[in-house]
């Protein structure tokens, strides 16, 4: 039985290792490792980077991509003060209503409002983007295999020559990290395109890194709490396990001495 188990366990381990990772069967190039702090098993989000990432999203990505699952109030968790977030929200106008006369009206956004979407609906988004739909970014890091590294690689993967024999369609761009190699989104991050409020040098690589951190946080805002709680739960269970095992040994020891 023991050897049997060993063989089965070995086979299982091989399968487990090969299984889920084997899903990324595609022509896309394997993403580069961005070395993100949150990728670590016990890692946390770099707040400063995530705040800069929000600035990149706001000034660049938000022109085409919605983040409809996030509210302005969520930004408080990024380390911004409530007053700051209120001020950020107030710079956006959202449609509210109907009012007492039955008409919709515009007002500055409040903390409880969702991020304003750039387009009224998918059809409008497609029309404005040459037929391509810019995906919502709320959970994008969860929705892609190896999400953070993929986004970082994708955003910094422009400007390479397509391999011989590949013709890039009209209005498309070559990016080796995108499945199929042709992506409707052009290169959007260029050096010094925006001016960071904290004075960090806004290189394209820095912006890609920051916006990826922000989007990773947005996809799984519970990550840090989850990992903290996980450590506590595992420590608790480890002690409980030792106690239970101790009790079990005691109880069974009595049985054995009596029977033998």
């Amino acid at each position: 039985m023991k050897r049997f188990l060993k063989i089965t366990a070995l086979a299982g381990a091989i399968l487990l290792a090969a299984g889920p990772s084997g899903q990324a069967a595609g022509e896309a190039q394997h993403p580069r490792d961005g070395g993100f702090s949150f990728a670590n098993l016990f890692g946390t989000f770099d707040r400063a980077s995530a705040q800069r990432g929000f600035q990149v999203y706001k000034e660049v990505c938000a022109n085409c991509h919605s983040m409809r699952l996030l509210s302005y109030r969520n930004l408080v968790e990024l380390g911004l003060s409530e007053a700051e977030v209120r001020a950020i929200a107030a710079t956006f106008t959202v449609t509210d209503g109907p009012n007492d006369e039955g008409a919709m009206f515009e007002r500055p956004a409040r903390l409880s409002d969702r991020f304003r979407s750039p387009f009224a609906n998918d059809a409008a988004a497609r029309t404005a983007n040459n037929g391509a739909l810019p995906p919502d970014l709320s959970v994008i890091v969860k929705a892609r295999h190896d999400g953070a590294n993929y986004l970082y690689s994708l955003l910094t993967g422009y400007g390479q020559e397509p391999p011989a024999g590949v013709t890039i369609g009209d209005g498309m761009n070559y990016n080796p990290y995108y499945p199929g190699g042709q992506i409707a989104m052009g290169q959007v991050l260029n050096d010094d395109q925006i001016e960071y409020t904290d004075g960090t040098n806004a290189s394209a690589d820095q912006m890609a890194r920051d916006v990826t951190t922000f989007l990773a946080w947005a996809s799984e805002p519970e990550t840090e709490e989850r990992r903290r709680m996980g450590i506590r739960v595992l420590v608790f269970l480890a002690i409980a396990g030792l106690l239970a095992y101790g009790v079990k040994r005691k109880i069974w020891a009595e049985l054995k001495t009596k029977s033998a």
Binding site: A240, L243, A244, G246, V247, K250, I251
Partner: peptide, 14 residues
């Protein structure tokens, strides 16, 4: 006694 103590702490943990 030892077992009681163990069992007690295990129960408390539970």
């Amino acid at each position: 006694t030892k077992r009681d103590f163990l069992a007690l702490s295990a129960t408390a943990f539970a």
